[in-house]
C-alpha cells in the first residue's frame, strides 16, 4: 500500500542568506569568499531524513515515535505529497487523507457553513460528497446554532471541533494523523477519540504520529522509531515502545 524506498530529505538551513544582493556581489568579485561560502553551505545542510525504508500493508496501523525534530512530521509530509524527497521514491496506492494540521484551510471571515465547503474542497472532496455529508458534519461538530457565524468569532475549541468534523468525514484508504486526538472539551475529546478508533478499526491504513506512548500502544500494530532522520528500530509495538521509553527516560 505504501512503499518508502531509501528516502532522504535535505534542507538548507542557511537558505535565506543566499538571496542577499550583498553576498552575490561579494561572491562575484571574490573567489575565496565564493569557495568558503560553498563549504559553509555544505555545513548548513540538514538531513531531516536519511535513507528511510519501510512498507505499510493495507489495513495496517503504523505508529511513529521519536524525539522532537527526529523527522516524523517531515516523513508524513513526504508521504502525503506535500514535499518531494531529495532522494529515493515513495509509492502510494490509494487516496490519502492527511490530518497533519486541522483547520489549515479555514478562512476566518467566512461563516461555518462556507468554511465546511471551503475546507472540504481543500481536502479534495467533491461538491456532491460534501452536500451529502453536510448534515453529518454539523451533527458531529454540534455547532448547529453557529452555522451562520463567521469563524473569526469562534473559540479555538469550536474551530478545532469543526475542523476535526470536516477532516474525518471521509473513509479514506490511507489516513495520516499527526497528534490531533485531543481537541475540544472533555466530551468532544471522548467523541473524537472514538471516531478515530472507528476509522482506524474500519480497515483503513493509518500512519500515526504521537508523543503519547499510551495511545500508540493501544492503536498501532507496528511502530517505527525515528531519531535524527534515521530509522532506529521497526517492529512490534510493545518492543519498540519499551526500547523508546527506555532511551527517553534513561
Amino acid at each position: 500500500m505504501i512503499d518508502v524506498q531509501n528516502v532522504s530529505m535535505r534542507f538548507n538551513l542557511g537558505i535565506e542568506k543566499n538571496n542577499s544582493l550583498k553576498q552575490i556581489a561579494i561572491d562575484f568579485f571574490n573567489k575565496n569568499a565564493r569557495q568558503s561560502r560553498k563549504e559553509q553551505k555544505k555545513q548548513n545542510e540538514f538531513w531531516a531524513l536519511r535513507d528511510v525504508n519501510f512498507t505499510v500493508k493495507k489495513g495496517e496501523v503504523v505508529g511513529f515515535v521519536g524525539s522532537n525534530g527526529a523527522g516524523k512530521s517531515t516523513l508524513l509530509k513526504v508521504v502525503a505529497g506535500v514535499m518531494k524527497p531529495t532522494k529515493g521514491q515513495i509509492l502510494v496506492g490509494g487516496n490519502i487523507c492527511p490530518m497533519i494540521e486541522l483547520g489549515a484551510g479555514f478562512d476566518l471571515e467566512l461563516n461555518a457553513r462556507e468554511n465546511i465547503y471551503l475546507n472540504g474542497a481543500v481536502m479534495g472532496y467533491s461538491k456532491d460528497f460534501l452536500d451529502s455529508k453536510f448534515q453529518e458534519i454539523v451533527d458531529f461538530s454540534e455547532l448547529h446554532d453557529f452555522l451562520e457565524v463567521p469563524v473569526r468569532n469562534f473559540s479555538s475549541g469550536m474551530v478545532a471541533r469543526l475542523a476535526f468534523s470536516v477532516a474525518t468525514i471521509v473513509e479514506p484508504e490511507i489516513l495520516i494523523v499527526d497528534e490531533i486526538l485531543s481537541v475540544g472539551d472533555l466530551n468532544f475529546q471522548q467523541k473524537s477519540e472514538n471516531k478515530m478508533r472507528s476509522l482506524i478499526s474500519g480497515g483503513t491504513t493509518v500512519l500515526y504520529v504521537s508523543h503519547s506512548i499510551k495511545s500508540i500502544e493501544t492503536l498501532c500494530d507496528r511502530v517505527v522509531w525515528l531519531e535524527h532522520g534515521q530509522v532506529v528500530m521497526t517492529g512490534e509495538t510493545k518492543e519498540v515502545c519499551a526500547a523508546y521509553y527506555k532511551s527517553q527516560v534513561g
Partner: peptide, 21 residues
C-alpha cells in the same frame, strides 16, 4: 476535474470576503 471544485470555492471565497464588511 478533482480540483475544479476547489477552484470554484476559492474564487467564491475571495468574492465573499472582499466586500463582507
Amino acid at each position: 476535474r478533482k480540483y475544479s471544485f476547489l477552484l470554484k470555492q476559492l474564487v467564491s471565497r475571495d468574492f465573499k470576503v472582499k466586500y463582507k464588511r
